[in-house]
């Protein structure tokens, strides 16, 4: 247990932020923490936060790896739309769910491979390389759906979005499983350290014998995979692929989740679990705004203010004077 204490302490600003947001949600709506079983799954606002936050959390898992390698993936929202479109049109065409799911995930991985090739081999700036697919991807999704919302009724595919496992909604289960798996892979092997090393200094890492080209392609492919999974969930949730709106602007939410989680946009040290926590913080705020009863004109202003406060609470220069419990001084001096 003692081993986890420094991790908890490091996560203090985020956990405090989440606690404060949940407290305000509870003030706005006293039944916020009520849970009950409804049709074989847990039902309540807290579950909504996790369920609605799952797609962004999944995006953030992939985005963390990309950002740690000093890149960024702007195409995840468009890849979501493409994967959803592929899943919906194939289902309507009568293909069985396993083939549909594999194909949609394969589309995501292919998009990620394309991004990875542009960044690692052609050495394009990540922001530009992924911007290409961000713009084109949504167009391709619209081509696949022919501009309409393709609806489906296949129970297998719908289960991914609205089913339940151990009383928990499927999206939450998938996000949690993916997060654990990703953490195990990057922390129980050297992979995480290699990605961090590329993020800090790619040429030094290459000279040290790391195959940076391959690793960068892998992280983008992983991000594409995550985006496709999120896209399938989003489509299954509304039983239809909405190419115009699925995943729209979610790339920004995913980047924000990573930043709130404390991973530097300049690459290097990262934490997947903290990014997931970031996604939950964002969604806790969104759900709170929805049930607060504020007029919708205030939504974005409230959101912006809360995020500024969260980021200020984490800022190192404010840390010394702030009322928040900050990292222990010893750890701080070691980092510096």
């Amino acid at each position: 247990m003692r081993k986890f204490m420094p991790g908890l302490r490091k996560a203090a600003p985020q956990l405090v932020s989440l606690g404060v947001i949940l407290f305000f949600n509870w003030l706005a709506f006293p039944g916020f923490f009520d849970l009950r079983i409804q049709d074989g799954r847990l039902f309540g606002s807290l579950i909504d936060v996790l369920n609605r936050g799952a797609p962004v959390a999944i995006l953030a898992i992939g985005m963390t790896a990309v950002i740690a390698s000093k890149g960024v993936d702007l195409s995840v929202g468009a890849v979501m739309a493409m994967a959803g479109a592929v899943a919906a049109t194939m289902t309507v065409a009568g293909h069985p769910p396993p083939i549909v799911l594999l194909s949609a995930l394969a589309v995501g991985v292919a998009c990620g491979l394309l991004n990875g090739l542009l960044v690692a081999v052609l050495e394009l700036q990540p922001i530009v390389a992924t911007l290409i697919l961000m713009v084109a991807g949504r167009g391709i999704a619209q081509l696949i759906t022919e501009g309409v919302i393709v609806t489906f009724n296949d129970p297998g595919l719908i289960f991914v979005g609205t089913g339940a496992f151990l009383d928990l909604p499927m999206p939450v289960v998938l996000a949690a499983a993916l997060a654990l798996l990703a953490v195990l892979v990057v922390r129980r092997t050297a992979l995480g350290m290699l990605i961090e090393s590329i993020g800090v200094n790619r040429s030094a890492s290459t000279y040290a014998g790391i195959n940076s080209r391959l690793l960068i392609i892998i992280v983008y492919a992983f991000s594409g995979f995550c985006a496709a999974l999120a896209g399938i969930i989003a489509a299954a949730d509304i039983r239809g692929a909405d190419a115009n709106n699925a995943g729209l602007w979610l790339e920004l939410d995913a980047i924000l989740a990573v930043v709130i989680g404390g991973t530097s946009l300049l690459g290097g040290r990262f934490s997947i679990l903290m990014s997931v926590l970031g996604a939950i913080i964002i969604q806790a705020m969104n759900t709170g705004i929805l049930i607060s009863g504020f007029p919708p004109e205030y939504n974005l202003v409230v959101k912006a203010c809360v995020i500024i406060l969260i980021l200020l609470a984490q800022s190192a220069s404010l840390g010394g004077v702030a009322w928040l419990p900050r990292r222990i001084p010893a750890a701080k001096s070691k980092e510096a």
Binding site: R52, D237, I238, D242, N245, P295, P296, N299
Partner: peptide, 23 residues
């Protein structure tokens, strides 16, 4: 009694309605 934006989309319509139902 409650009014929120759902951005004209299915996904947001569902999410906001979930909030309304709980509240």
């Amino acid at each position: 009694i409650r009014s929120q934006t759902g951005d004209f989309t299915r996904a947001k319509g569902k999410e906001v309605m979930e909030g309304f139902l709980k509240a």
